[in-house]
């Protein structure tokens, strides 16, 4: 499958008074149209920072960005990192769109829903204000908002959280974008509403044949919709694989830890959920060697103390399955079975 977005060695850092914060460190991934890539990791692992960099939404004054994020447009490839801000702006909404975590605060409180969607539509379409509102009504209907003709004139505070997220999706999709980045789209919502929104995203992806990047910290969400998964830790991708490989053959101790911390129906009753001990390292002073070492229960199995001295490469240990760990495949198999039986 030819990728639509190709992110290569993307590094985003923020100079602060305390030092350089390396929020996203040498990140590479691809995503094709019709495919959903989940980017998983805890808070501060660099998921959002990476996607905002692709969208060109970091202030160029406060962020240092290097690497490439190439969109394979019908008109030819375009790197959103090196392109001018104006050129990237003209891709936003049309070629790539984004929805955000908190639908409560992501809509302008002073404008009606219809006005806000019509505004996005009018950027790339010719037509009157009434045409825009008509298009907004269609989009509201498409994302499953009842009585769209009436609600299009209402304001954000008159909508519930789930309905607002539907509005956000309608607004992001109004110009039929090729790539949709969904940054924790369900985190602020009730569990029942979460799965409705995920299903909606899935349906919309089919409808528009979009590439979707789903950013989340919730592996349950990932299981529902993703085709492939990138696991990020301390600004780096530590594991990248097909969805089934991540769940059944996790190849990095961090991923194994994440999976052990969520309940699963296919595992023994009475098993206690295991938390990963410790805290992620400071992004200002990353430790030498593997960033996960201090929290990893297998690092002493690696000879010559390599985990403390040498940053592991992102190796393709199995086909299409990358992981950033010094452990051998045999050691990892043992780690997996050990973790599962505890």
């Amino acid at each position: 499958m030819k990728p639509f977005l190709e992110v290569k060695n993307l590094t985003v850092s923020f100079p602060t008074e305390d030092g350089l914060v390396r929020a996203s460190n040498d990140v590479s991934f691809t995503v094709a149209r019709g495919e959903t890539l989940a980017v998983v990791g805890e808070s501060g692992s660099g998921k959002s920072v990476t996607s905002l960099a692709v969208m060109g939404l970091h202030s160029r004054r406060s962020a240092n960005i290097s690497g490439q994020a190439i969109l394979h447009l019908p008109t030819g490839p375009m790197d959103t990192i090196s392109a001018t801000p104006e050129a990237v702006r003209k891709l936003r909404g049309k070629s790539m769109a984004m929805i955000f975590q908190d639908p409560m605060s992501a809509l302008h409180p002073y404008y009606s829903i219809g006005d806000q969607i019509a505004e996005a539509w009018a950027l790339y379409n010719k037509g009157s204000k009434a045409d825009g509102i008509r298009r907004a009504t269609e989009m509201l209907e498409l994302v499953g908002i009842p009585e769209p003709g009436k609600r299009v004139r209402e304001f954000p505070h008159q909508f519930s959280g789930g309905m607002r997220q539907r509005v956000m999706i309608a607004m992001a999709l109004v110009n039929n974008p090729s790539l949709l980045i969904a940054d924790e789209p369900t985190t602020a919502l009730d569990v029942t509403v979460q799965s409705q929104i995920l299903k909606l995203l899935k349906d919309m992806q089919k409808e528009f044949n979009m590439a979707v990047i789903l950013i989340t910290h919730d592996l349950g969400v990932v299981a529902e919709v993703a085709d492939r998964v990138c696991v990020m830790y301390a600004g780096k991708i530590v594991e990248q694989a097909e969805i089934n490989d991540i769940y059944y053959k996790p190849d990095h101790p961090y991923t194994i830890g994440l999976l052990n911390s969520i309940p699963r129906v296919d595992q023994l009753e009475g098993r206690r959920l295991q938390a990963i001990p410790g805290q992620p390292p400071s992004l200002i002073s990353l430790p030498k060697g593997c960033a996960f070492r201090s929290r990893c229960s297998f690092s002493e199995q690696v000879p010559d103390n390599r985990c403390a001295t040498e940053v592991p490469d992102l190796n393709e240990k199995l086909e299409g399955h990358f992981s950033r760990c010094h452990l051998t495949e045999t050691q990892l198999t043992r780690a997996r079975s050990l973790a599962g039986s505890k």
């Binding site: 702006r89 769109a97 955000f100 605060s105 302008h108 409180p109 404008y111 505004e119 992001a172």
Partner: peptide, 29 residues
């Protein structure tokens, strides 16, 4: 720094429109 201003930029609006229509409307009220 409000979320809805980031949304306005994500839509593809120009900085001029973001300032005039989205920031000033809320800031001047």
């Amino acid at each position: 720094s409000e979320d809805y201003i980031r949304t306005a930029r994500a839509k593809g609006l120009s900085e001029k429109v973001v300032l005039r229509k989205h920031i000033l409307r809320a800031a001047l009220a």
